[in-house]
């Protein structure tokens, strides 16, 4: 049970994020929701590579040969960078929308369809 807790955290994070994206009307809260989903997925990737008692996967002068998997860490690093880019772009769009309409409530939108 105890080693399942990170996976439960992943599910909870993704659920919170999806709730934010689907039910919140404030555009910034939607962006936050996407960021939370991203954190959940990143945590999932890290958790996949974890080995009990492993050390960081650096070969030079490692104390023992039991290491956590390096690939998921590389994936997570890339995914964090991509997430930053996505969130930055979305926040800049929100800023422009705020300047244009004077509000960031998604109910008061002009787009039809």
């Amino acid at each position: 049970m105890l080693h399942n807790i990170p996976f439960i955290a992943v599910i909870v994070l993704i659920a919170i994020g999806l709730y934010g994206v689907l039910f919140k009307r404030n555009l910034i809260k939607i962006v936050m929701g996407i960021n939370i989903i991203g954190s959940g997925v990143n945590l999932f990737l890290i958790e996949l590579g974890y080995r009990e008692g492993g050390v960081a996967p650096i070969f030079t002068s490692a104390p023992k040969l039991e290491m956590v998997l390096p690939t998921p860490q590389a994936l997570t690093l890339t995914s964090i960078v991509i997430n930053i880019a996505v969130v930055a772009l979305m926040l800049s769009l929100v800023t422009l929308i705020y300047k244009h309409y004077g509000g960031i409530d998604s109910e008061k939108r002009r787009l039809k369809g």
Partner: peptide, 30 residues
């Protein structure tokens, strides 16, 4: 304003979709 709104909409939808792709990749990798 409409262009900004539709770009935001596209971005929300496609980034949630892309994160789901990453989650699925994680499932297969695991």
């Amino acid at each position: 304003g409409e262009a900004l709104e539709s770009a935001f909409k596209y971005m929300v939808i496609s980034s949630v979709g892309a994160l789901m792709v990453l989650f699925a990749i994680g499932l297969l990798y695991g």
